[in-house]
Design a protein around this nucleic acid. Structure first.
Length: 243
DNA sequence: TGCTGGGTTATCCCAGTCGT
DNA sequence: ACGACTGGGATAACCCAGCA
């Protein structure tokens, strides 16, 4: 690994770190995050592909089988994960924060879609920052953003999909983000997830640590799902729904 | 159902630039 | 001079929508 380190540019390492941090990223997402300085989108995507294939050649990154389907026509982007050498590289750096070994595995399509959707939120926020619309203060994926807490004498862990703090319009916004792909039943969503948020906020942990109580942002596929989610939330008399 | 056009993305190839 | 990187044209591969 020692020699390989000297063959890598800071951008190479940043790409590997990003992929490890978000578990899976598409070529397009990596391009938006790390190849924004090119003259055109075409140049950026070409440069991105070259770098990704070079990293794949060193077994730093692993490319998943080409996913069939996709939105809006065209072949879907490749999906990337960290390969064995990339994982060793990150763990060799004590400052990277990655200490546990990450094994390459074949994710289920549902898990992959959900993970990529979360990463997509992060990429879109990055694009908004570049456009000068906001300033990212903190963005934390799982498991960094997990919040252990104790409720009614039982130990639990709040597991948001994403934690986001941004500076916008002279105000700092804190949000827990839940990305719903419409695949889980609304009852489960409300009874497990929404209830967990209410319990966690009631402990007052965030208020004492952050000085604020972040709201929960639920991202749903369409308006119909949003309406049904709201109705399901309103049916629970013990949930305030103000989060 | 099969064909066609249009849109998107990946890849190949060549030329130019830059650092060593 | 050489290798690595970058930019851009051309083209292949793939999917979707519309139409007969």
């Amino acid at each position: 690994m020692g020699r390989l380190q000297y063959l890598l540019t800071p951008r190479d390492v940043a790409v590997i770190r990003s992929v490890r941090e978000w578990r899976f990223l598409t070529t397009r997402q990596i391009c938006t995050l790390h190849f924004s300085e090119h003259a055109s989108d075409n140049s950026a995507i070409r440069a991105c592909n070259r770098v990704l294939n070079r990293l794949r050649g060193h077994r730093l990154l692993h490319r998943l089988e080409r996913p069939v389907g996709g939105v809006g026509g065209g072949s879907a982007s490749y999906v990337w994960a960290v390969d064995a050498a990339g994982d060793r590289l990150l763990r060799a750096d004590p400052d990277s924060g990655f200490t546990k070994r990450s094994r390459t595995y074949r994710p289920t399509p549902l898990f992959l879609e959900h993970t990529l959707a979360i990463a997509d939120v992060r990429v879109r926020v990055e694009a908004l920052q570049r456009a000068g619309r906001l300033e990212i203060v903190q963005v934390s994926p799982e498991p960094v953003n997990w919040r252990p807490y104790s409720w009614a004498g039982r130990a639990s862990t709040l597991k948001p999909d994403l934690y986001l703090a941004v500076w916008q319009h002279d105000d700092e916004w804190h949000r827990y983000i839940e990305v719903d792909r419409g695949t889980e039943s609304l009852q489960v969503l409300v009874d497990k997830k929404a209830r967990a948020y209410e319990e966690y906020v009631a402990t007052g942990i965030d208020l004492s640590h952050l000085g604020v109580v972040p709201q929960v942002l639920w991202l749903v596929p369409d308006q119909r799902r949003a309406d049904r989610f709201r109705a399901e939330l309103d049916r629970r008399k013990d949930l305030t729904g103000r989060l």
